[in-house]
């Protein structure tokens, strides 16, 4: 499959948030302000690309073919360790980036999107190049979802919302409508 198709499907047609319903927690939790949602998105792109490569290597060279059932636990272990490692190194070598990513790095450790993409990569039997492209595209799709949501919610804060719907309710309704809108891409292409 061509890499362009992977990019299109990962960002739009099979958006991780809107169509696969992974990463809903940060999608609703970190989308109150545009600035923070962008920070989160960039941190996810960063961690996703890195963890996908490492998990792919571990899966294909250590787990495959006899220990495939250890996949989930090993991936969690690797992702958690990796994020911690990156955080430690960043703190020393690049304090500016460390501060920019801030609280999002440790939050991402337990993000289901990261684990989900690691598993999707090995399930789809991507090679290493496809893995990198797919992971970054998914993370970009996640960022787009987050930024769209944050933009809408910033406006919702100012809008005159009925007291019945105010707060979480209207956010969930918005998320649903957005998800429906993205369903439109689904028919265009699938992997």
């Amino acid at each position: 499959m061509s890499l362009l198709a992977i990019i299109f499907v990962a960002i739009l047609a099979d958006n991780i948030v809107f169509n696969q319903f992974l990463g809903i927690c940060p999608y609703l939790g970190v989308s109150k302000r545009l600035e923070t949602s962008l920070g989160m998105g960039i941190a996810v792109i960063f961690v996703m690309a890195m963890s996908a490569v490492v998990t792919w290597l571990v899966y294909n060279y250590i787990l495959f073919p006899h220990l495939v059932y250890l996949r989930t636990i090993v991936f969690i272990l690797i992702i958690a360790g990796l994020v911690q490692l990156v955080e430690t190194i960043l703190k020393k070598t690049n304090p500016t980036l460390f501060r920019a990513l801030g609280i999002f790095l440790p939050l991402i450790t337990t993000n289901c999107t990261i684990l989900g993409v690691a598993i999707l990569n090995v399930q789809a039997e991507h090679n290493i190049i496809e893995t990198i492209v797919y992971s970054i595209s998914v993370a970009v799709g996640f960022t787009i979802a987050l930024v769209i949501m944050a933009g809408i919610r910033e406006r919702l804060d100012l809008a005159n919302v009925s007291s019945l719907l105010r707060g979480a309710a209207v956010s969930l309704v918005t998320a649903g409508i957005l998800s429906l809108a993205f369903m439109g891409f689904k028919g265009m292409m699938t992997l």
Binding site: V58, I62, L63, L67, L70, I73, V74, L77, I78, G81, L82, Q84, L85, T88, I89, K91, K92, T93
Partner: peptide, 20 residues
Amino acid sequence: VLGGLGLLIGGLLSYAAQRF
């Protein structure tokens, strides 16, 4: 495999914690 990976990551982390 699991123990080895855990040990490896733990070692890496403690090394990084001191080095950085």
